[in-house]
Design a protein around this nucleic acid. Structure first.
Lengths: 222, 222
DNA sequence: AATATAAATATTGTATACAAGAATTGTTGA
DNA sequence: TCAACAATTCTTGTATACAATATTTATATT
């Protein structure tokens, strides 16, 4: 397979950046990456160019590539858009899902009940992703689905810690119940409204949300 | 200035693709581009990698880079998202614009009146862009603003011909009047609703919109 | 000792060289 | 004449070489 080394490299780095394994602000040294991946600088540079277009790294001319640090303002803006996109997915899903998809959504919700009971955070995290992606798909709008998924992905490092907090797990489950009911019953306004607030606030105040953000990952200078 | 050749190249090609000067489906030959821009293959390839991440070109392994052809489904999906984003911008702008911005919006609308009277399509096209971008900025959400602008940009080749049609100019002006009124008076629901339909339908049927699409630019195979 | 300046060192950006796979052309056989 | 195969040519993907700019280190001067 060809042109895979630069694409593979990009995917790998993307993964590590999104998961926060590479801390925002760190410089991505080209030769270090060549040694790590056993390739020349050419595919490394092509991968970095790709990541810069994805807004995951910032290429400063003649200075190198840096994992992008987002300011609090940028982050809040992105979460606001995320909320809108999730809401739109919900609205369209309530309208367009076929019976099979509605059944599947119910199922994806119900299987999380034991996970909540057992406080299985990792398990719930994965099931939560599946639940939301089912809604994206249910919009029957591939572009919207991809955009939403991609933005969710980019916000991952700033969301990972949230579920661990106090009774977020219970809150999330409760909200999922309402969302599932709204979508499967075709109540699009309700689905949109519920999903629009679900992402960020989760029945808490916005201040709590802000406080939950890992501030060390945030660019204080901007 | 450094790393500018690959970025400049990307910008130039992006411009030409978005304006439809390079027809979707055409292959972008690397050596041809090196000759045209007087650079080596390295920056050419980096530019193509960037464009592939922007979904403007498709890189088929060992086959080359092709200007992306969008299927009708993809296009409809993108316009649907565009409508949502425009609506969101309007909603937030109605809420957040400061007095100065509201005045500016009124002005940007009013200066288009003579352009409509004189059927100055190019002039109106430019003024229209300025009007809408003022709304994006008025959302006070830079991420949303950038995303909306970028998507509008990508849809340009499929929108250029629309304004020329029958009395689209008058319709557009009339709708802008209502939008301006809604935003400046802070009626966010109205602003969202008006902008959500303005992009695509412009007081016509959706079928008319579909019929207005330049079908030769659309991938029939997909 | 601290700062400024200059040499050296390292890193990015670009061009070229080489390797591997695709497309094309030409030839052979039915 | 057409189809199938083979050799050639072309194009992409990767590595390396060279050029230009930042960064670091060393030296000199106050």
């Amino acid at each position: 397979m060809a042109n895979m080394s630069s694409n593979d490299l990009r995917r790998q780095l993307e993964h590590e950046i999104v998961l926060g394994e590479i801390v925002p602000g760190t410089r991505l040294d080209e030769v270090a990456l060549t040694e790590r991946f056993g390739v020349s600088r050419t595919p490394v540079r092509e991968a970095l160019q790709q990541l810069s277009m994805m807004q995951l790294v910032e290429i400063r001319p003649r200075r190198g590539a840096f994992v992008k640090k987002m300011s609090l303002k940028e982050l809040v803006d992105m979460f606001e858009v995320m909320a809108e996109l999730e809401g739109t997915c919900g609205k369209l899903a309530a309208d367009r899902m076929i019976d099979e998809e509605r059944d599947k959504l119910k199922e994806l919700h119900l299987i999380t009940e034991p996970l909540v009971k057992n406080k299985d955070y990792d398990g719930y995290y994965r099931a939560n992703v599946a639940f939301h992606e089912a809604i994206y798909k249910g919009s029957h709008n591939d572009f919207l689905s991809d955009q939403t998924k991609s933005l969710r992905n980019r916000l991952t490092p700033y969301r990972r810690l949230q579920l661990r907090q106090s009774n977020r797990l219970n809150n999330s489950f409760q909200e999922h119940a309402e969302i599932t009911e709204a979508i499967t019953s075709g109540n699009k306004e309700m689905a949109e409204q519920l999903l629009g607030t679900h992402v960020t606030v989760q029945r808490g105040s916005f201040n709590d949300f802000l406080a939950s953000l890992p501030m060390d990952l945030i660019d204080q200078s901007a």
